[in-house]
């Protein structure tokens, strides 16, 4: 009975492998191949120019702050959404997911409409002498926007699966909120939290559309993807190779993230499985 579907199996595995190789693997290899097409010294020169170094700095600042803000938010929001019953919970959960389905360009636009020259908050910012649009704070805000739900999205399913009995028991025995979190909740969500933070960092490092709307000065407020864009669009064959050289940095990060992802998911699954096995016993 199984014999007949063997051709089907081979055909489907071949289609899947071909799709992944053609659409995903070859593009990945071609970034590296392109970046090294003018030799190693050109590669090293391309990734150490002044504008690239400044872009690395800005990217790391934006990613660091976005990671911090979204991790704090993610933990608080997922605690709220899984530990309490209240009206409008579904709506709140959907609102948190908004950045997933809003175009990054619109995220950038919305900060311009709020803080920019036309924005309603601009008199306030002028009075306080704060510059957001076309400055580093704008880049940071845009990065926070696009990575907003990443951490909470990973934690919520884990907390839902674990249930809230343990926390309720601790609360009835008089434990304080933070103690409950530290001693009971945190150990459950540890891996999901790390995984969510990795995803958040990955997306923050590579954000392009939203940042593109809010950052206009190369060498000052440009992030790595914007620097890649500038190099690629300047059009000379040298600068295109440089664009791929800078891209290769982000590709290396992406590959590291994929490897970490599969490790953490494997671990997460393993702890989940042992837990389920324990429940079945």
């Amino acid at each position: 009975m199984r014999k007949q579907s063997k051709t089907g199996k081979i055909v489907l595995i071949t289609i899947s492998t071909l799709f992944v190789v053609l659409m995903l693997v070859i593009p990945l290899i071609s970034v590296i191949a392109n970046s090294l097409s003018k030799g190693l010294s050109f590669y090293l020169q391309s990734i150490t120019t002044k504008t690239v170094l400044s872009a690395i700095k800005v990217t790391l600042i934006a990613t660091g702050i976005a990671l911090l803000v979204n991790t704090v938010f993610g933990i608080i929001a997922s605690w709220l959404l899984t530990r309490y019953e209240f009206k409008g919970k579904q709506v709140l959960a959907a609102l948190i997911d908004i950045p997933f389905s809003v175009s990054p360009v619109i995220a950038g636009l919305s900060y311009i409409m709020m803080f920019g020259r036309m924005g309603w908050a601009s008199p306030l910012l002028e009075a306080l002498d704060i510059k957001i649009v076309f400055a580093i704070p704008g880049v940071v805000l845009a990065t926070i926007f696009v990575t907003f739900p990443f951490v909470s999205r990973e934690i919520i399913p884990v907390l839902n699966a674990v249930g809230k009995d343990e926390e309720e028991a601790a609360a009835m025995m008089g434990a304080k909120g933070f103690t409950i979190f530290r001693k009971i909740t945190f150990p459950h969500i540890k891996w999901a939290l790390i995984y969510g933070m990795i995803l958040c960092a990955a997306r923050a490092l590579g954000e392009f559309g939203a940042v593109n709307a809010l950052s206009k000065t190369r060498g000052e407020t440009f992030t790595l993807p914007l620097e890649i864009d500038a190099l690629y669009l300047s059009g000379s064959s040298d600068s295109i190779v440089s664009a791929f050289a800078v891209s290769s940095l982000l590709v290396i990060v992406a590959v590291v993230i994929l490897v970490l992802r599969s490790i953490f998911e494997y671990r997460g699954r393993k702890t989940q499985n042992t837990k389920e096995a324990r429940v079945e016993d």
Binding site: L205, G206, F208, P225, I228, D229, S247
Partner: peptide, 10 residues
Amino acid sequence: ALPTAVAGIT
């Protein structure tokens, strides 16, 4: 995981 701009130029 891959930044969109990198995917785009590639």
